[in-house]
């Protein structure tokens, strides 16, 4: 049992970090995505698809060389906070949320990000990516820790996501059909801006499986496998099916439209098997920082969001 409380993390530091995470996410492609797209570009034999993949690689470099956003649709910036059980924030978590909003508005002006966020009915845009329920901050907790991991994800996307209420009798074939249906819907004409990381959320409730699919696509790095061997096997199997679709970038003939498949599961109602699927485009914008109570900040590319505790593997 600890006898001393951890020092409070300053809200002004969180604001600086929220700005910097937005800047890094918008400009620099994480290395896991860059190297896997580079591999695809080298392997692709179809002329059109190879042309597109090489331009994607060129674009990653142009963004970093010029320090400009890799894609002008800088999406909807959102945050994931993994909070150590012993972490404290000066001013409390209301101050953290205010700091994140201020950092996002500042990044919108200075990086710049495109001010995408509007009122859904009036379409009013305050040009700062801040508004009602936005940016969202999702929280998870980590035992035996006094830091906060803050991840910024700029999530584009009008296309590439779907939900289906399946039932136990639909089984794995039902999941495979749904997976192919979403590819048929959104890889044609390149609506998903593939190559895409495909996240699949199975089980839970409707909202939980949609959340898990999005987090699986956005917050796990390319090549990562679910620790459950059965789930990992399904990830491999779905990835192989992706290669056989014959679809490349933009919906042209090719093999590499599915960059990776990440599956997450949650316990669900005995009668059902809700499934959600989420495509994350090749312009993948994410950045993470670990903020320590002493004011040190460690920036990194892997969010490490799916911990054993987060999946509740270790909670009896």
């Amino acid at each position: 049992m600890r006898t001393t409380e951890a020092a409070a993390i300053r809200a002004s530091l969180i604001r600086e970090v929220a700005f910097e995470l937005n800047r890094r996410a918008a400009i620099a492609i994480p290395r896991d995505v860059e190297s896997s797209i580079g591999d695809l570009a080298r392997r692709e034999t179809q002329k059109l698809s190879k042309f597109v993949l090489l331009e994607i690689v060129n674009n990653y470099k142009a963004a970093v060389d010029d320090q400009r956003p890799m894609c002008a649709d800088t999406g909807l910036p959102r945050f994931y906070a993994k909070v150590g059980n012993d972490a404290r924030v000066e001013g409390g978590f209301v101050a953290l949320e205010r700091a994140v909003r201020e950092g996002t508005a500042e990044a919108t002006r200075k990086v710049p990000l495109r001010p995408n966020r509007v009122h859904p009915l009036t379409r009013k845009d305050y040009n700062n990516n801040v508004g009602i329920h936005a940016p969202t901050v999702d929280y998870s907790w980590e035992p035996e820790a006094d830091w906060i991991d803050l991840t910024c994800f700029q999530k584009g996307g009008l296309f590439g996501g779907d939900y289906r209420m399946l039932f136990p009798q639909d089984g794995i074939p039902g999941i495979k059909r749904f997976y192919l249906d979403v590819i048929s819907e959104f890889f044609k004409r390149g609506l998903s801006c593939q190559p895409a990381i495909v996240g699949v959320g199975i089980g839970g409730t409707k909202d939980v499986c949609v959340r898990l699919a999005k987090e699986a696509a956005c917050l796990r790095v390319v090549g990562d496998r679910n620790p459950d061997p059965g789930v990992a096997e399904l990830e491999e199997e779905l990835h192989e099916i992706g290669k056989k679709t014959g679809l490349g970038p933009m919906g042209f003939k090719g093999e590499g439209a599915v960059l990776d498949v990440h599956v997450e599961v949650a316990y669900t109602h005995t009668g059902g098997m809700p499934v959600s699927i989420h495509h994350q485009c090749f312009a993948l914008r994410r950045a993470t920082a670990r903020i320590h109570p002493d004011g040190n900040v460690d920036y990194r590319e892997n969010p490490l969001w799916f911990t054993g505790y987060y999946r509740r593997e270790t909670v009896s």
């Binding site: 993949l53 674009n59 142009a62 894609c71 801006c193 312009a283």
Partner: peptide
């Protein structure tokens, strides 16, 4: 447009 997410090149 190519790929659909190569905004930095178009920005240039």
């Amino acid at each position: 447009t190519v790929g659909y997410g190569i905004g930095a090149q178009y920005g240039r």
